[in-house]
Amino acid sequence: MRVYAATEGVKDEGFNPPDAGDFNLPPFIDGNSFATKPILLAFFSVLIISVFFILAARKSAVVPSKLQFAGESIYGFVRNDLGRDVIGHEFMRFAPYLFTLFTFILVNNVFGIVPFIQFPTMSRVSFPYVLAAITFFVFHYIGVRRHGLIAYLKGIMFIPGVPKPAYILITPLELATYFIVRPMTLSLRLFANMFAGHLLLLVFILGGEHLLQGVIGLKLVSPFSFVVAIALTFFEFMVQCLQAYIFTLLTALYITGALADEH
């Protein structure tokens, strides 16, 4: 059932609430569809990460400098908390991938609240899609390498200890979970969190700005909108770190599942 309210002609007067169109940034150079802000930000994030960690690792000393300490604690967090504790003794093979994933997603997310940049790259859905696709291929490739194609698929499709007729119900679910739902939820969770968070900030900041242009009563209310926007900015920072963590954690867990023997 669809409902329509009479708002024709409001778009050019009054307040334009932010919508999905605000994420559609035009390219800097006309006709070159690659020169958009998200793509530039993705390259910029790669630059930031490389420069930071090369500087941090260049002069490694027994008594670390502040920079080295910062770099090492991030790396140590990913390697120990997400690698060793989840994957087990084979974690060093996957530490580079997990670390790259975590820092890339984290920096791109935090762009959403950095002043003058203020656009989370991951709120364009193609970026999470590609990251989830890489994770998808990584964990299936590892599973196939470890068990062989037939045994791996068998392990996914038939869980032990179930009466035979029940496999008709369960096998499609297992297949769909492994091949469709996992990459889908992985990418859409990251995308939706970043999208909604950016939209939320836009609503409060643009709303506060619009209230400031109203009559005196509205002007008095607008600071509250800005205060909420600032509070939400800190909340967003938390969400952005959490989403980078969850994406990496789930990647590590999927890899663990592909490596596991019982399967």
Partner: peptide, 20 residues
């Protein structure tokens, strides 16, 4: 972390059940 994994696995199973 196991709890986290179980949480999303449950969600995924129910979603794929409904979808399939």
């Amino acid at each position: 972390k196991n709890d986290e994994n179980a949480f999303w696995t449950i969600f995924g199973y129910m979603l794929s059940g409904l979808l399939i």
